[in-house]
């Protein structure tokens, strides 16, 4: 664990850059992490991020299948929003732990 300053806020991050404490997250932090990955966030991105945060807060395991059935995006759109890392990148930007699911 290390401390990193993202968007002017000191946050605790894992070795791979995932936030350790999801309550330290805000939209500015999301934008900066997304920028590092090369994604520009739109309102649709935030809908997905908020969904992921809600499910994580409720301690539900996340899979892309679940996100695809959330009614927010289908799986194809999810890949378009977060290319090459639909769950990995979206989790990182949402300030939640690295996904542990294989699906």
């Amino acid at each position: 664990m290390s401390v990193k300053t993202i968007a002017g806020v000191e946050v605790n991050v894992s070795e791979e850059g995932y936030l350790e404490d999801m309550s330290q997250w805000n939209e500015e932090i999301a934008k900066e992490i997304a920028g590092e990955i090369g994604i520009e966030l739109t309102p649709k991105h935030f809908e997905v991020l908020n969904y992921l945060r809600e499910k994580t807060a409720a301690k539900e395991a996340l899979t892309i299948r679940k996100v695809g059935k959330s009614g927010i995006v289908d799986i194809k759109e999810l890949y378009k929003l977060f290319p090459k890392g639909p769950l990995k990148f979206s989790s990182k930007i949402a300030g939640i732990p690295k996904p542990t699911s294989c699906i």
Binding site: A61, T63, R65, K66, D74, I75, K76, Y79, I103
Partner: peptide, 18 residues
């Protein structure tokens, strides 16, 4: 129960991602 989809849906997931 582990959120593993049936085969037809799994194939769709794979092609949806490219």
């Amino acid at each position: 129960a582990l959120d593993m989809p049936p085969v037809d849906e799994f194939l769709e997931m794979i092609t949806a991602g490219g």
